[in-house]
Protein backbone atom coordinates (compact mmCIF):
# COMPACT_ATOMS: atom_id res chain seq x y z
CA UNK A 1 0.00 0.00 0.00
CA UNK A 2 1.38 3.45 -0.92
CA UNK A 3 2.03 5.65 2.09
CA UNK A 4 -0.07 8.80 2.25
CA UNK A 5 2.28 10.18 4.86
CA UNK A 6 5.75 8.96 5.72
CA UNK A 7 7.76 10.29 8.65
CA UNK A 8 11.45 9.43 8.88
CA UNK A 9 13.68 10.40 11.80
CA UNK A 10 11.66 13.46 12.76
CA UNK A 11 12.83 15.50 15.75
CA UNK A 12 11.58 18.72 17.29
CA UNK A 13 13.18 21.17 19.68
CA UNK A 14 11.51 24.37 20.82
CA UNK A 15 13.27 26.96 22.97
CA UNK A 16 16.17 24.53 23.44
CA UNK A 17 13.81 21.88 24.83
CA UNK A 18 13.79 18.54 23.01
CA UNK A 19 10.16 17.54 22.49
CA UNK A 20 10.43 14.78 19.87
CA UNK A 21 13.29 12.49 18.93
CA UNK A 22 13.76 10.27 15.89
CA UNK A 23 10.07 9.68 15.18
CA UNK A 24 9.40 7.34 12.26
CA UNK A 25 6.12 5.87 11.02
CA UNK A 26 3.92 5.88 7.97
CA UNK A 27 0.22 6.19 7.27
CA UNK A 28 -1.64 4.62 4.37
CA UNK A 29 -4.88 5.95 2.90
CA UNK A 30 -7.82 4.95 5.07
CA UNK A 31 -5.74 3.98 8.10
CA UNK A 32 -6.74 5.18 11.54
CA UNK A 33 -3.78 5.64 13.81
CA UNK A 34 -4.09 6.40 17.50
CA UNK A 35 -1.22 8.01 19.34
CA UNK A 36 -1.19 7.09 23.01
CA UNK A 37 1.11 8.37 25.70
CA UNK A 38 1.19 10.02 29.10
CA UNK A 39 0.81 13.77 29.54
CA UNK A 40 3.78 15.62 28.11
CA UNK A 41 4.86 12.70 25.92
CA UNK A 42 4.75 14.92 22.81
CA UNK A 43 1.49 13.79 21.22
CA UNK A 44 0.22 17.27 20.39
CA UNK A 45 3.66 18.37 19.20
CA UNK A 46 3.83 15.39 16.89
CA UNK A 47 0.43 16.21 15.41
CA UNK A 48 1.46 19.83 14.89
CA UNK A 49 4.60 18.87 13.01
CA UNK A 50 2.60 16.96 10.42
CA UNK A 51 0.80 20.03 9.03
CA UNK A 52 3.68 22.42 9.65
CA UNK A 53 2.18 24.28 12.59
CA UNK A 54 5.65 23.57 13.96
CA UNK A 55 7.89 24.16 10.94
CA UNK A 56 10.90 23.73 13.21
CA UNK A 57 10.62 19.93 12.90
CA UNK A 58 13.80 18.29 11.62
CA UNK A 59 13.91 15.10 9.58
CA UNK A 60 11.84 13.89 6.68
CA UNK A 61 8.07 14.24 6.32
CA UNK A 62 6.69 13.04 2.98
CA UNK A 63 3.09 13.75 2.02
CA UNK A 64 1.88 11.85 -1.04
CA UNK A 65 5.51 11.01 -1.70
CA UNK A 66 6.69 14.63 -1.73
CA UNK A 67 8.50 16.51 1.04
CA UNK A 68 6.16 18.64 3.12
CA UNK A 69 8.36 21.65 2.29
CA UNK A 70 7.41 21.28 -1.38
CA UNK A 71 3.79 22.16 -0.58
CA UNK A 72 2.42 25.61 0.13
CA UNK A 73 0.60 25.93 3.43
CA UNK A 74 -2.67 26.16 1.53
CA UNK A 75 -1.94 22.93 -0.34
CA UNK A 76 -1.19 21.21 2.95
CA UNK A 77 -4.46 22.50 4.43
CA UNK A 78 -6.37 21.18 1.42
CA UNK A 79 -4.99 17.70 2.14
CA UNK A 80 -4.79 17.67 5.92
CA UNK A 81 -7.66 18.64 8.24
CA UNK A 82 -6.84 19.57 11.83
CA UNK A 83 -8.93 19.80 14.98
CA UNK A 84 -7.06 21.26 17.97
CA UNK A 85 -7.29 20.05 21.52
CA UNK A 86 -8.50 23.38 22.85
CA UNK A 87 -9.90 26.51 21.30
CA UNK A 88 -11.01 29.66 23.10
CA UNK A 89 -12.29 32.14 20.53
CA UNK A 90 -11.67 35.81 21.32
CA UNK A 91 -14.15 37.05 18.75
CA UNK A 92 -17.82 36.11 18.57
CA UNK A 93 -17.77 33.72 15.61
CA UNK A 94 -20.91 31.76 14.94
CA UNK A 95 -20.56 28.03 14.43
CA UNK A 96 -21.29 28.34 10.72
CA UNK A 97 -18.78 31.17 10.32
CA UNK A 98 -16.12 29.11 12.03
CA UNK A 99 -16.72 26.05 9.86
CA UNK A 100 -16.78 28.23 6.73
CA UNK A 101 -13.29 29.47 7.55
CA UNK A 102 -12.14 25.96 6.70
CA UNK A 103 -12.84 26.71 3.03
CA UNK A 104 -9.82 29.03 2.77
CA UNK A 105 -7.67 26.23 1.36
CA UNK A 106 -10.25 25.62 -1.37
CA UNK A 107 -10.29 29.18 -2.66
CA UNK A 108 -10.20 27.99 -6.25
CA UNK A 109 -13.53 26.18 -5.79
CA UNK A 110 -16.81 27.79 -6.79
CA UNK A 111 -18.88 29.38 -4.04
CA UNK A 112 -21.52 26.65 -4.39
CA UNK A 113 -18.99 23.86 -3.96
CA UNK A 114 -17.55 25.49 -0.88
CA UNK A 115 -21.02 25.94 0.62
CA UNK A 116 -21.79 22.29 -0.08
CA UNK A 117 -18.55 21.26 1.64
CA UNK A 118 -19.51 23.28 4.71
CA UNK A 119 -23.05 21.82 4.73
CA UNK A 120 -21.66 18.28 4.48
CA UNK A 121 -19.19 18.78 7.32
CA UNK A 122 -21.92 20.26 9.52
CA UNK A 123 -24.25 17.39 8.64
CA UNK A 124 -21.67 14.66 9.31
CA UNK A 125 -21.07 16.12 12.76
CA UNK A 126 -24.79 16.60 13.39
CA UNK A 127 -24.50 20.23 14.41
CA UNK A 128 -27.06 21.80 12.06
CA UNK A 129 -28.98 23.11 15.07
CA UNK A 130 -25.91 25.02 16.29
CA UNK A 131 -25.35 26.96 13.06
CA UNK A 132 -26.03 30.45 14.39
CA UNK A 133 -24.80 29.86 17.95
CA UNK A 134 -21.83 31.83 19.20
CA UNK A 135 -18.76 29.61 19.59
CA UNK A 136 -18.16 31.01 23.07
CA UNK A 137 -21.56 29.78 24.23
CA UNK A 138 -20.97 26.12 23.33
CA UNK A 139 -20.43 23.34 25.82
CA UNK A 140 -17.16 21.40 25.69
CA UNK A 141 -18.80 18.57 23.76
CA UNK A 142 -20.49 20.86 21.25
CA UNK A 143 -17.24 22.74 20.73
CA UNK A 144 -15.40 19.52 20.00
CA UNK A 145 -17.95 18.58 17.34
CA UNK A 146 -17.63 22.03 15.76
CA UNK A 147 -13.84 21.75 15.71
CA UNK A 148 -14.22 18.37 14.04
CA UNK A 149 -16.58 19.85 11.44
CA UNK A 150 -14.03 22.60 10.75
CA UNK A 151 -11.41 19.94 10.08
CA UNK A 152 -13.68 17.99 7.74
CA UNK A 153 -14.42 20.86 5.33
CA UNK A 154 -12.92 20.21 1.91
CA UNK A 155 -12.72 16.42 2.33
CA UNK A 156 -9.08 16.23 3.44
CA UNK A 157 -7.22 12.99 2.80
CA UNK A 158 -5.74 13.02 6.28
CA UNK A 159 -7.35 14.14 9.53
CA UNK A 160 -5.24 15.19 12.50
CA UNK A 161 -7.29 15.12 15.69
CA UNK A 162 -5.72 16.30 18.91
CA UNK A 163 -7.49 14.58 21.77
CA UNK A 164 -10.96 14.66 20.18
CA UNK A 165 -12.75 13.12 23.17
CA UNK A 166 -10.96 14.73 26.09
CA UNK A 167 -13.33 16.53 28.50
CA UNK A 168 -16.34 14.89 26.83
CA UNK A 169 -19.08 13.01 28.62
CA UNK A 170 -19.77 9.43 27.47
CA UNK A 171 -22.59 10.51 25.15
CA UNK A 172 -20.38 12.97 23.28
CA UNK A 173 -17.53 10.44 23.18
CA UNK A 174 -19.88 8.01 21.45
CA UNK A 175 -20.93 10.74 19.00
CA UNK A 176 -17.33 11.43 18.07
CA UNK A 177 -16.77 7.72 17.60
CA UNK A 178 -19.89 7.50 15.44
CA UNK A 179 -18.78 10.49 13.33
CA UNK A 180 -15.40 8.94 12.65
CA UNK A 181 -17.08 5.68 11.64
CA UNK A 182 -19.49 7.58 9.37
CA UNK A 183 -16.55 9.36 7.82
CA UNK A 184 -14.79 6.05 7.22
CA UNK A 185 -17.89 4.68 5.48
CA UNK A 186 -18.55 7.80 3.41
CA UNK A 187 -15.03 8.09 2.11
CA UNK A 188 -14.87 4.35 1.48
CA UNK A 189 -11.86 4.10 3.72
CA UNK A 190 -9.88 6.74 1.82
CA UNK A 191 -9.57 9.30 4.61
CA UNK A 192 -6.76 8.51 7.00
CA UNK A 193 -6.94 9.67 10.61
CA UNK A 194 -4.19 10.31 13.13
CA UNK A 195 -5.53 11.09 16.56
CA UNK A 196 -3.72 11.83 19.75
CA UNK A 197 -5.78 10.52 22.60
CA UNK A 198 -5.81 9.49 26.24
CA UNK A 199 -8.80 7.26 25.56
CA UNK A 200 -7.29 3.78 25.27
CA UNK A 201 -10.64 2.17 24.53
CA UNK A 202 -11.42 4.63 21.73
CA UNK A 203 -7.99 3.86 20.29
CA UNK A 204 -8.57 0.12 20.41
CA UNK A 205 -12.10 0.36 19.02
CA UNK A 206 -11.37 2.60 16.08
CA UNK A 207 -7.74 2.41 15.08
CA UNK A 208 -5.92 0.03 12.81
CA UNK A 209 -2.60 0.87 14.47
CA UNK A 210 -1.56 2.34 17.78
CA UNK A 211 1.63 4.30 18.32
CA UNK A 212 2.88 4.68 21.86
CA UNK A 213 4.82 7.85 22.59
CA UNK A 214 6.96 8.30 25.66
CA UNK A 215 9.23 11.26 26.38
CA UNK A 216 9.14 12.24 22.74
CA UNK A 217 10.10 8.84 21.38
CA UNK A 218 8.09 6.06 19.78
CA UNK A 219 7.99 3.24 22.29
CA UNK A 220 5.77 0.97 20.20
CA UNK A 221 3.93 0.92 16.86
CA UNK A 222 1.58 -2.04 16.64
CA UNK A 223 -1.96 -3.26 16.07
CA UNK A 224 -4.61 -3.01 18.81
CA UNK A 225 -4.52 -6.80 19.20
CA UNK A 226 -0.78 -6.71 19.93
CA UNK A 227 -1.43 -4.17 22.66
CA UNK A 228 -3.87 -6.50 24.35
CA UNK A 229 -1.38 -9.33 24.38
CA UNK A 230 1.58 -7.60 25.98
CA UNK A 231 2.70 -5.19 28.68
CA UNK A 232 3.01 -2.27 26.31
CA UNK A 233 0.46 -0.09 28.09
CA UNK A 234 1.96 -0.84 31.49
CA UNK A 235 5.40 0.24 30.36
CA UNK A 236 4.00 3.29 28.55
CA UNK A 237 1.98 4.68 31.45
CA UNK A 238 3.91 3.09 34.33
CA UNK A 239 0.55 1.82 35.57
CA UNK A 240 -1.22 -1.50 35.65
CA UNK A 241 -4.21 -2.17 33.42
CA UNK A 242 -6.84 -4.82 33.42
CA UNK A 243 -8.99 -6.05 30.54
CA UNK A 244 -12.71 -6.43 31.11
CA UNK A 245 -14.51 -8.71 28.66
CA UNK A 246 -17.66 -7.26 27.14
CA UNK A 247 -19.95 -9.29 24.85
CA UNK A 248 -19.85 -8.02 21.28
CA UNK A 249 -16.63 -6.06 21.77
CA UNK A 250 -13.58 -7.93 20.62
CA UNK A 251 -11.07 -5.88 22.56
CA UNK A 252 -13.17 -5.68 25.71
CA UNK A 253 -12.48 -2.66 27.90
CA UNK A 254 -9.13 -1.65 29.30
CA UNK A 255 -9.29 -0.10 32.75
CA UNK A 256 -6.46 1.16 34.95
CA UNK A 257 -5.95 -0.76 38.16
CA UNK A 258 -4.68 0.87 41.34
Amino acid sequence: MTALLRVNGMSLSLSAVRLLSEISFQVAAGEVIAILGPNGAGKSSLIKCLNRIFPEAQGQILLEGRPLAAFTQRQIAARIGYAPQRFAPIFSYSVRQFVELGTFSGAELAEGQRRTGVDQAIEICGIQHLGQRDMASLSGGELQLVLLAGALVGNPRLLLLDEPTTFLDPAFQLRVLSILKTLRDRTEGQTAVIMATHDINLALELSSRVIGLSQGRVSFDCTPREILNGDLLTSLYQSKFSRVSVPGRECGFIVPVA
Partner: peptide, 22 residues
Protein backbone atom coordinates in the same frame (compact mmCIF):
# COMPACT_ATOMS: atom_id res chain seq x y z
CA UNK B 1 -8.36 40.15 4.52
CA UNK B 2 -9.27 36.47 4.12
CA UNK B 3 -6.06 35.50 5.91
CA UNK B 4 -6.85 37.92 8.74
CA UNK B 5 -10.16 36.11 9.25
CA UNK B 6 -8.19 32.99 10.05
CA UNK B 7 -5.39 34.67 11.95
CA UNK B 8 -7.98 36.03 14.36
CA UNK B 9 -8.50 32.38 15.38
CA UNK B 10 -4.88 32.07 16.47
CA UNK B 11 -1.65 31.14 14.74
CA UNK B 12 -2.09 27.37 15.03
CA UNK B 13 -5.54 27.20 13.46
CA UNK B 14 -4.65 29.79 10.84
CA UNK B 15 -1.64 27.69 9.81
CA UNK B 16 -3.69 24.50 9.81
CA UNK B 17 -6.30 26.15 7.59
CA UNK B 18 -3.71 27.24 5.05
CA UNK B 19 -2.23 30.61 6.05
CA UNK B 20 1.54 31.01 5.95
CA UNK B 21 1.55 32.85 9.27
CA UNK B 22 5.32 33.25 9.36
Amino acid sequence: SARLNLMALGDDLATARGVNVR
